[in-house]
Nucleic acid binder design. Structure first.
Lengths: 200, 200
DNA sequence: ACTTATTACCGGACCCCATACAGAAACGCA
DNA sequence: TGCGTTTCTGTATGGGGTCCGGTAATAAGT
């Protein structure tokens, strides 16, 4: 993971440098008002180097969330067959939410009001929603009776939507907010209740 | 609605013309392989005229769904205060789904496999998901006890996700599929069951 | 009939994201 | 010293989306 690279030209830049340069500029001139040229030149690298670390401009908006999402995937992928798949998903979501750093709010949420065209923001968010949905769907379908596949896909989508709503509310509640997992708990529990009869 | 325009230069083109030109080209060279120049020149109009009818290239992918979505908004906006807001939403979703033309599958679904980069497709889909969610959320929050606002937003998101999953499955089931409202019914009923206790 | 308001259409320019490619720079290693 | 590997840069290209000035075609007012 944090493996020191052993051959080739050493990196002069880093993902963090670009992220921080971008963060400063987003605060100064909003996301839309900031070009990739701005970010890379403030970070002291070429424009192309930006694309060595991020595959798109909007990826910068989601760095924090992406780490939590990949944690979710890792945990689910390496967990043994559970008694009840739905309960396992619920507790895993809560665990991951609880471990999300309290002060790391994705830029996507904090900048949502300032953005001229919101379409790019929404669009990049869709990729994250889809990623979580596919993860949950994969886990549910592979740990549930074969005839419940339909319900698994639906439950995965509904759970993701509920959790995403919770995350948005959590972000909007500002510095006085409680921990994220409380929000997620309240949001997904009725969904779990609704689908539980389907997975028995 | 179908109001004949009364002033100004009459239209020489139409949304339908562009939509059909685009549909042909999508079949011939896929969505990614088709530029807006291609579409507009086949339709015999200028590139700018395309943007008079569609605000983005990806809008063409969703014409059918967008009509159904706006029908949903219209019905909910003009419906009187119901006994139970959640039941009203459920039956309205089913009604709108039942009225969706059986053979009109959005291009977004039929072309999903052929697309090189799926990000644009996902992104434009997010806008539709958000539109439905906001419509449902608005209706629920304005027809429910004031202290249930949190649950209303969550329920709106979960219902939208479930309905969207149903629509995707319906589209993928091909020509032998049954009516859309059957799919939607199966998908949203557990979600409604889960949230019903919250709205009593 | 002449003017005006209004709408549709066109051409061209511009900005920016994203990708591709070739080559240079900076290291380890033989 | 030369070679392989990796990072970084410059340049070019394509395409989406916006903007603006100008023109064409109609209805309405005088």
């Amino acid at each position: 993971m944090a493996e020191k690279q052993r051959v080739g030209r050493p990196r002069r830049s880093s993902r963090r440098m670009l992220e921080e340069a971008a963060a400063e500029l987003f605060l100064e001139q909003t996301y839309d008002g900031t070009t990739i040229d701005d970010i890379s030149s403030r970070a002291g690298v070429s424009r192309n180097t930006f694309f060595n670390y991020f595959s798109s401009k909007s990826d910068v908006l989601w760095v924090d969330l992406d780490e939590t999402i990949s944690a979710l995937s890792r945990i689910l992928a390496s967990s043994p067959a559970p008694d009840n798949a739905l309960d396992a998903v619920e507790s895993t979501l809560l665990k991951v939410a609880a471990e999300h750093p309290a002060n790391r709010v994705p830029w996507a949420f904090t900048q949502i009001e300032l953005m001229g065209t919101r379409t790019e923001l929404l669009s990049s968010g869709m990729a994250r929603v889809l990623a979580v949905t596919e993860t949950l769907n994969w886990y549910l379908t592979s740990n549930v009776r074969a005839d419940a596949g339909q319900d698994a896909a639906t439950a995965a989508a509904a759970l993701t939507a509920a959790a995403a709503t919770a995350a948005v509310r959590w972000a909007n509640d500002g510095v006085g907010r409680g921990p994220l997992d409380g929000y997620v708990q309240a949001a997904i529990s009725p969904v779990c209740a609704g689908f539980r009869p389907r997975f028995d």
